[in-house]
Structure formats: structure tokens, C-alpha cells
Design a protein around this nucleic acid. Structure first.
Ligand code: FES
Ligand code: FES
Lengths: 166, 166
DNA sequence: GACAGTCTACTCGGATAGACAGTGTCCGAGTGAGTACGG
DNA sequence: CCGTACTCACTCGGACACTGTCTATCCGAGTAGACTGTC
């Protein structure tokens, strides 16, 4: 009952990329340093997002990462699922079919009531994340800015020269 | 992003106990055999449910397990939480406060927008499980019985003499 | 000054160790039913 | 026949190994900018 720590990283990283101007790309190393994360493991999380088609990568000296789709078309669920290996919380091993008192398999056409409720909870969890897009998050962040962070970010990006592709 | 396998065991075990007449108790070994589970690890899950006050245990030769509360007062959420070590899915390490561009801690009074959405999804997941009681499950199971299972269970219980406390 | 060739610094990607929680198993303390014995 | 003390089989509870996943790190293939030398 615990998501990978990389989920928080991936969400914040995608939000940061979504705030960049279109066409700009940022190396994973810079993105990790910006968030205060160790770059080694962080890059592995980015690889999964690239494989899922959420962000795109450019190799080479002036390579970097950028969003592969508009922020409106990326939901939080897509990011979380891309980063997690196991896709569902509850796993039903059809325990009801085992044991000395089980009936013939033919009689288990309808899903188990327990599994039904668990999967319903699972679906509700996903619904919340699926109905929130990265653009929604960007808008919320712009509405309630943290004082000073925006300017500090611009200065830091200019100072380190991390932005590529413009 | 995966719950322990013991969750399915615990839920089915509690449902089985809730179907027993009041005052009856069943040894963990019999309960495991009835579900086709290895008894060793299953008993460990039962220990957690006992510690959480959901079921009660009686030691000794004719000992066994029984529900500690009426089935109406036990929600699925209580069972799942009792069996899981980590209580929340998403863990926010306040990554926004780290890195070279973070502001002073004083400015982070409001929770992070990302964490807010994730915790909302978490709350929705719990809401579904909290609003379903063991009694609801028992009623649903009684409404759609699997042919033959009920009689086989009664016979098996009588044959093995696993029921105690009556 | 402009251009071609080379070099080098920097990027992503995957392959490789280590840490931790979940899994699986075992044995000991405790208890009450069953039994043997005495009244 | 009834009461009592004993034995013992059976239970839960916790202590002890094992396994798979998550975490953390490193190095190689590949690219584009930077530099040098020539025309
Ligand atoms: S059989 Fe898997 S939850 Fe009921
Ligand atoms: S700081 Fe933890 S989710 Fe934003």
C-alpha cells in the first residue's frame, strides 16, 4: 500500500516541464538538481515517462527532456501508471475457487463481491487522477504562486544555461 | 502500487467468520485450510486483525477466532488498513521546499497542489471502502449464493469438527 | 573573414549492485478437554 | 457414581530465514557545440 517515491518526482518534473515555453528542453540532470534529487535514480524515472510517450528525449550534447504532448492531454493518472510497475492495487487470486468447499468453476461466472468493491474503490481512485490534467495543475499553481520562486527559477535557469532548444 | 496478498485473505476470512453463528469460533488452521491457504503465513495476518480489535482470539486447546464486533460495525477499510503497514498510498516528501529555487519555509503554509489531488484520490478510495460494511457483503453473498457451496461448507464444518464455543 | 575537419564535453539509455519490506516457516508458552484415579 | 488431579493434544503468539521489488549507482553509445587550422 505504497506508491513509489518516484511518483512525486515525476509529477513535479512534468509540472516543471509543462511550465517551460514550447520547444524548450531541459536535461534530466538539471531537472533533478532543481528539485534537490539525486540525478542517478531520477533519470530512471524519466526513462519510464519517455517509454510511455509522455515526455520526449533528445540525446547528444545539447540534449534534454520536454513534454511530448500538450499539458491538456496529460492526466495525472497517465504519469502515475507510467511510473508504477504494478497497475492495480488489489489483486484477486480467486481464492473463492480454492479449498475443499469450492464449487465447479462453471458456477463462478460473476465476479466475487469482495473483488467488486475493491475494484470499485480502485476505479474511484483513478477517476480523480484521470480527471485532473497537467494543465489544471499548472493553472492552480499560477493562481497561488509561492512568493519569489518564479523569479528565482528564471534566474537559475538563465544562470546555469540549462535551457536548450530555443 | 500493490496491496499485500493478505488483504484478500483477511477479507474472505472475516466474511466467513461473519457468517458463523454468534459465539462460534474457528481455529486459524481450519480457516486457512478452508480457503486453501498455507496456514503459517495466514496466521500472521490474523494476528494483525486481532491487534486491531476486529477479531478476537481464544487460546488453548479449543481456542479459535471470532468476530469481535457485529458485522455492521466493521468496514472493509478497517480490515485493509489493519493488514497494511503503510497507511497511505501517496507520500509527499515536500519536494517543493528543496532545491536551489525554494522559498523560505514560511511561504509553504498551504499544501502542495499535487499532494492535494493525490490525497483527494486517496480519500475517495477510502470512502468506497469505508461505506461498505461486512454486513453489506454478507447480504450480497446471501442474495447470490454459489450453488452447493453453502451445503458443502456446513458438511465440512461438521465433518472436521472445527467449530468451537457453541 | 568564412569554412571544413576534428575534438571534446555533455546527454540519454541500459546494465549492474545494495537495501528494505513482504513472504514463508518454525517453535515455544499457554490452555482446556479428555482421562485415570480415588472416594 | 461423582469429584479431583493429571496428562496431553491443540491453540495462538512471536522469533527466525528467504525472496522479490524498490532504490541507488555506474559506465558506454551517441550527438552537437566548440575549437583549430586552412583558404
Ligand atoms: S476471490 Fe478474490 S476477492 Fe473474492
Ligand atoms: S511537494 Fe510533495 S507533492 Fe508537491
Amino acid at each position: 500500500m505504497q506508491l513509489s517515491e518516484t511518483v512525486e518526482w515525476g509529477l513535479h518534473a512534468c509540472l516543471a516541464l509543462a511550465m517551460m515555453p514550447k520547444g524548450a528542453r531541459l536535461p534530466a540532470r538539471a531537472l533533478a538538481e532543481y528539485h534537490g534529487i539525486k540525478p542517478s535514480y531520477f533519470s530512471k524515472a524519466m526513462q519510464k515517462l519517455v517509454a510511455a510517450g509522455i515526455i520526449q528525449s533528445v540525446e547528444g550534447r545539447s540534449g534534454g527532456l520536454a513534454m511530448a504532448k500538450p499539458a491538456e492531454d496529460v492526466s495525472l493518472l497517465q504519469i502515475v501508471v507510467a511510473l508504477e510497475d504494478h497497475k492495480t492495487f488489489f489483486r484477486c487470486t480467486e481464492i473463492r475457487r480454492k479449498g475443499p468447499c469450492a464449487a465447479a468453476p462453471k458456477h463462478y461466472r460473476t465476479p466475487c463481491n469482495i473483488a467488486r468493491v475493491m475494484h470499485k474503490a480502485d476505479a474511484e481512485w483513478r477517476r480523480v487522477l484521470a480527471t485532473t490534467s497537467l494543465a489544471d495543475l499548472r493553472q492552480s499553481a499560477a493562481a497561488e504562486p509561492i512568493p519569489g520562486v518564479d523569479k528565482a527559477t528564471q534566474d537559475w535557469l538563465a544562470e546555469t544555461g540549462a535551457v536548450r532548444g530555443l
